[in-house]
């Protein structure tokens, strides 16, 4: 109870902060009950709000899949590209207009199977963009096939007796490819994830945030792991926060411990900086920098 003698300040009703960032004419969204993608959108919306970026300068690029639909729901310049190709589209967008803040928002299958090559090359070049990967460990949109992130022994429709296909450790891949910022959280860790996205947006260079997220319809159900809430509680009980952990140690086993935290935060010159510095050295005054 409030102290009866204290002076009270009445505060007017506040809008849901995510709403100003959503295309409300496209709601309700297509995501299943208990799916975590919407939760990551909340984190992104708050991170963006806190970042104080001019929203007109923010572009969001998605590939194909459940997370690929994020672009369609955000009231930003948004590009829903082809399967796996969000990163090269974003590369063209960012290099052609360096004043844009470019965010790639896509799923694990899109970014790391069909799009894996683009991920490592954009990280290697240190193209200035933030990549947010919602990792639900499965292909959702196509009906529950294994992804390059599916833990060994977990079942998908294409590995019905359990997968024996070794998965990627995404933070390790991002780290070794050259990303300047690498963090992993789960949809249970909403405040951490929000902070990580905010930090990633503030970094100059290729930043990567992985968010482990429940897919109740196609991952949890087939693997008898309960619903979305059960997965959230699993994350709560089995996540171990290890900031600065060596990324090669953060691989995931089926229903094993999940190492979360901020793993990498460093500076490297961006592709554009390297280009301008080098060509200025070569050409001197003759160099005509790309104006954007």
């Amino acid at each position: 109870m409030l102290d009866q003698n204290a002076v009270e300040t009445e505060i007017p009703e506040k809008e849901n902060p995510v709403e100003s960032l959503l295309r409300m004419d496209r709601m309700p969204h297509i995501w299943c009950p208990g799916c975590g993608i919407g939760t990551t959108v909340n984190c992104f919306a708050r991170a963006l709000e806190q970042s104080k970026l001019d929203l007109d300068s923010v572009s969001i690029v998605s590939g194909i899949g459940c997370t690929g639909r994020v672009a369609g729901y955000l009231n930003l310049d948004s590009f829903h590209t082809t399967h796996g190709r969000a990163i090269p589209f974003a590369t063209g967008l960012k290099l052609a207009n360096p004043n844009l803040k470019v965010v790639v928002y896509s799923g694990d299958g899109d970014l790391f199977a069909i799009g894996g090559n683009h991920f490592i090359h954009a990280a290697r070049r240190n193209v200035d963009m933030t990549v947010i990967c919602v990792n639900n460990l499965i292909y959702g949109m196509t009906g529950g096939q294994v992804a390059p992130t599916t833990p060994v022994t977990a079942k998908g429709t294409t590995y019905p007796y359990g997968s024996y296909d070794p998965p990627f450790n995404l933070p390790y891949l991002a780290d070794s490819s050259g990303a300047v910022y690498v963090a992993r959280w789960t949809t249970y860790h909403v405040r951490h994830a929000t902070k990580a996205i905010k930090e990633a947006l503030a970094r100059r260079g290729f930043s990567f945030v992985e968010i482990i997220s429940p897919c109740p319809t196609l991952y949890s159900r087939r693997n008898r792991l309960g619903d979305g809430l059960d997965q959230m509680n699993f994350y709560k009980e089995n996540s171990v926060i290890k900031n600065g952990a060596d990324t090669k140690d953060v691989g995931m086993d089926f229903q094993g411990k999940i190492t979360v935290g901020k793993f990498v935060d460093r500076e490297r010159k961006t592709y554009r900086q390297l280009m301008n510095e080098h060509l200025t050295n070569v050409f001197g005054e003759q160099y005509t920098p790309y104006e954007g």
């Binding site: 082809t82 589209f89 063209g92 967008l93 960012k94 207009n97 090559n117 954007g292």
Partner: peptide, 20 residues
Amino acid sequence: IQMEDEIASSIAIQGAVWAG
């Protein structure tokens, strides 16, 4: 930019178009 393959090249140019 020399991209990693032709798939990347053919979509990077479209990103650039939408950058104007």
